[in-house]
């Protein structure tokens, strides 16, 4: 077993790619799902501006989910089947949620005005269904994909916390992309949401080591415990910093409006890093490792070469899109 052997490094590279795709997805679709969850707290005019702040991005954001599930599908086919059949119902709820919110972007702008309320409801309900089911799946995954009353209770808890976390990052996005009364509201939403993030991070961090002795040992032995200390300490510092920043926002000249969003991204990244560290090398918790589940090296190599060429291009034009639509969100127009 050497690292020059493609059967070893390719699965690792693809696990890393999948991890990156999930993290990018959780951040990007996290903020636009969160904006959807916050919908009922805004008035009609604010709702239009909220949709305008995510309208040009949401489709590309969701594509990262397709990439993540695609990598799971193509690089780890046996794990793909095992995970998705175990999560059959929450996946179905998520898909219907994604459908309801995705089509609402177009319909609420194009349908007769009398129907707009219905599509706003569809947008909110779809966003909520998607967030809750993703959180539920996260909880079940942490619990080793076993369905017992206890694991379901934990999954329900993570469902709520992830939804609050998405609302939080959604609120920080709105602080960046809006101004005036809506921006003030977004600051309040973020202040409320941050406590959900703290509780969620705490619950997951406490539960994970107790599910498996292996994960416990990975965290609480020497010298790992010292090497890993930056993860929880960094998270704590970020949360404290975010709280201080939120109390001072919005500033008179709108400086630092992007700070909470960046902080939220960093916080999501740290939390995700911790989870990834806990579960590696397993892709199905405690059952199938990435090396056991991996496709044939020659198939992975074909994808790897394509990825090396195409991924930088994708990142390049994604940056282009965010640059084109930088600044405060204005009314969406085809003109």
């Amino acid at each position: 077993m050497t690292y020059s052997d493609p059967a070893i490094w390719l699965p690792f590279v693809f696990a890393a790619l999948m991890g990156a795709a999930i993290l990018i997805y959780v951040v990007l679709d996290g903020f636009d799902l969160g904006v959807g969850v916050l919908f009922p707290f805004a008035d009609k005019d604010e709702q239009d501006r909220m949709v305008a702040s995510i309208g040009p991005f949401w489709d590309a954001n969701e594509t990262w989910l397709v990439l993540a599930i695609g990598i799971l599908l193509v690089a780890f086919p046996t794990a793909h089947g095992a995970i998705l059949t175990a999560l059959y119902l929450p996946v179905a709820v998520m898909l219907i949620g994604l459908i309801l919110r995705g089509v609402a972007f177009e319909f609420r702008a194009k349908a007769p005005p009398a129907r707009k309320d219905m599509w706003n409801l569809s947008f909110w309900a779809g966003s909520l269904m998607t967030s809750l089911s993703q959180g539920y799946m996260l909880g079940l995954y942490i619990m080793g994909l076993e369905s017992t009353p206890a694991t379901q209770a934990f999954a329900t808890l993570t469902a709520v916390f992830l939804t609050v976390a998405y609302s939080f990052i959604g609120a920080t996005w709105l602080i960046l992309k809006t101004e005036g009364a809506l921006q003030k509201k977004a600051v309040d939403w973020a202040k409320g949401g941050i406590w959900g993030v703290v509780l969620g991070l705490g619950a997951v961090s406490l539960a994970t080591p107790f599910v498996s002795q292996r994960i416990w040992d990975k965290w609480f032995s020497f010298p790992e415990i010292v090497m890993l200390a930056p993860l929880p300490l960094g998270s704590a510092l970020l949360i404290a910093g975010l709280w201080v920043a939120l109390r001072r926002l919005p500033t008179a000249d709108d400086s630092f409006a992007g700070l909470p969003f960046l902080g939220a991204v960093a916080l999501f990244a740290l939390a995700f890093g911790g989870l990834a560290y806990s579960f590696y090398p397993y892709v199905v918790p405690e059952q199938i490792t990435i090396y056991e589940a991996a496709s044939a090296p020659e198939s992975l190599m074909i994808i790897f070469v394509g990825t090396l060429v195409v991924l930088p291009m994708i990142l390049g034009y994604t940056v282009l899109a965010y640059t084109v639509f930088r600044g405060k969100a204005t009314a969406l127009s085809y003109e």
């Binding site: 193509v74 074909i302 994808i303 394509g306």
Partner: peptide, 9 residues
């Protein structure tokens, strides 16, 4: 797998 991956990419 690779065919679907190329579609996404």
């Amino acid at each position: 797998g690779p065919l679907l991956a190329y579609e996404v990419l």
